[in-house]
Amino acid sequence: MANVWVIAEVKEGKLKKVALEMLSKGKELASQVGGALEGVLVGSGVEGLASEMAKYGASKVYVADDAALAEYNGEAYANIIGKLVEEQKPGVILIGASINGKDLAPRLSAKLGAGLASDVVELGADGGKLTVKRPIYAGKAFASIKFKTDIQIATVRPNVNPVAAPNDGASAEVVKISADAGAVKAKIVDKQLSAGGKIELTEANIIVSGGRGMKGPENYKMLEDLADVIGAAVGASRAAVDAGWRAHHDQVGQTGKTVSPTLYIAFGISGAIQHLAGMSSSKFIVAVNKDAEAPIFKVADYGIVADLFTVAPIMTDEFKKLLAE
């Protein structure tokens, strides 16, 4: 029997949305590969979240709950989860393709000699084995991947799998596991968090993004105002990042982040191929650009040919009105 595991990431005391997405998809996978859907929680004060995982289909949740595990440490988490995997031998391990998830997965792959596919956007099963599809060249092409190993690990891109309706009556067996992190060589000595709970680009449901057409860093305030109204993250093109207007971690594109939000609104972005690669898997794209010939309009569902400096404040006001209705 090949069980499907979801390693859930916890943020500010809540399960990350991608964990719910993976549980929803994992339930389907578990029935396809003939196993059970089980969850893993590692952290501090996380045990209570097992019942949340149960609502989305986990029949058993392994919990390592310890104050020392409050902060993600790749070595510690991999030691704890790796040991559990060796004991329980699940067939499929799903991990959210977050910054920490992408750090954890290869550590487990090496420890377990298990195949790993990163940032997958489609999950399926064939003959009891996992099959996945993942973007390569930042989404200019897709690779279908098969695994040769019994333990199959995938990091799953946020926002691509829908969250199923929770079953409030469901419960899961909670199995406490050792929180012994073993030998850890690399230690966190400092943390610098930016103010005001910024939404991570790769996990944002809506992204408002600005390019060269923004003309300078001061004008991004306009996009931040819009983003505040609609609960969006603010991204930028490579041109804007290279000009020093925005931080590197805001860059969308082949040398930045590949994103798949529900809605991507591009302001003053012409649409260089390496930018399009990073955002064209967005579900809906709105582009605002003065130049009617800009390549971004080729991928946009709605194209607004106008001056962004006029459009952005009107759009912010209109969304305010709409959301107040």
Binding site: G115, A117, F142, K146, T149, Y302, G303, V305, A306
Partner: peptide, 22 residues
């Protein structure tokens, strides 16, 4: 290798969208 590529595909073409001018 622990994984193998079984197929490569191109992304779905995005259909032409609506353009708003004015």
């Amino acid at each position: 290798s622990k994984t193998e590529i079984s197929e490569l595909t191109m992304p779905a073409e995005r259909a032409a969208g609506k353009v708003f001018e004015g």
